[in-house]
Design a protein around this nucleic acid. Sequence first.
DNA 1: ATACGATGTTGACGCGCTGTCAGCTTTTCG
DNA 2: CGAAAAGCTGACAGCGCGTCAACATCGTAT
Lengths: 226, 226
Amino acid sequence: MQVLRAMKSTSVSNEKDRAESPESNQSGKREQTKLANRAAILEAGRQIFAELGYEGTTVRDIIRRTELASGTFYNYFKSKEEVFHALHDDGVARFKPLLRAARENAGQDFQAFMITAFGAYFQFLLNDQTIDREMAAMPEWTRVRFDTPESLALFDELKGDIVAFATEFKLDHVDPELLTASCVGIAQEIGDRLLRGRIKDIQAAARFAAYFVLGGSQRVQSEMQA
Amino acid sequence: MQVLRAMKSTSVSNEKDRAESPESNQSGKREQTKLANRAAILEAGRQIFAELGYEGTTVRDIIRRTELASGTFYNYFKSKEEVFHALHDDGVARFKPLLRAARENAGQDFQAFMITAFGAYFQFLLNDQTIDREMAAMPEWTRVRFDTPESLALFDELKGDIVAFATEFKLDHVDPELLTASCVGIAQEIGDRLLRGRIKDIQAAARFAAYFVLGGSQRVQSEMQA
DNA sequence: ATACGATGTTGACGCGCTGTCAGCTTTTCG
DNA sequence: CGAAAAGCTGACAGCGCGTCAACATCGTAT
């Protein structure tokens, strides 16, 4: 059963919409169903992953929480991995503007950028319904990490920002690759501890990370040029 | 077929060993077989994981590369996950003495400790036959990360060392939890890039990381007490 | 309104993996 | 040597996987 049929009973919108706004979005019934099905699978996936963990969930678990037949799943995703990637990319996409805002607001102030960026990341991790948040909360020993193209694009953007600031501040002996890697590593590891409650104070963590990176960069610069 | 039987044909040692050294190690035939079987499974696991990736391998793949029957696997491990953990822990156990050596040799020199420790880690990652090395080389988007008790013990040991140095150097406003997290994050992220060839120079990377941590800690100390 | 192709859904199917267990072989020990 | 213990073996039931022929629904031309 397509999910649209199930929703019809509770939903007020129907064919009239199409009559009133004939060329609004893709609002053929077919398109609507596709969107609804995809959304249903993603939502079911989010729930099941949170309950069973990545390893523990099966495509069947996901589809079972849905009104769809098992075969339908494969019209939308190749595997549970692809579902997870989509969920993950959602999170990345929601975070991206926050990073951009941090850069806009910081102007030429490297320190402000770092504090805002780390703060935004930690805040985002803890508050936003990102799939990674759910997963990190699980007490598993075997974790999964995702490097989707979307993630990598975010890293690249971050690297661009960092290079710009590094140039501005004459950090010409600081390898941007290493610097970006360090920032990412720090963010991930501290973020992980925040999610597990080993660390509590987000603002303190953000300031720590920011000062750490600033001090680290400068020290590397002075040591490396010697 | 137990692997011992297979080895017998090429192995010279046999019952005589037991007669000659009756109470050497656990050298009952039974004990020997158990050791050999376990080792065979681990070795097969190492190969298969490297070939198929963590997600891609099945218990059957592992056991098939062995002369054992499928049921026997479960006398030794509960799942492929447990095999992987054992392999991972092997690596951790081999690295531990290197970290200890770094601390011994450094004496009171925090900088020397950091350079040696990071260097040892990167060297170890690239040279030692650790299972993680094999896996990171694979071009997957979905990675797996392991926090075994063994890993966590290593982190704790590292944290102890770091706290000792932090105390020595009056870094009393630097949260040890955050500092350790940062060191681990930096090591992991740079290590990852080394494994994938995005970064080449191990020594430069080690110095970068060490100076970064030193400078970072000091900056945090001075900012936080203000 | 009707009919017809296009599009998407359904669920049963064959295959392979999982973990178990009764039966058997090998080792240990008296 | 013989009996008991240990542990190996492979068949088995259960389940998840991805596919696909049959079917239902939608879009569109007449």
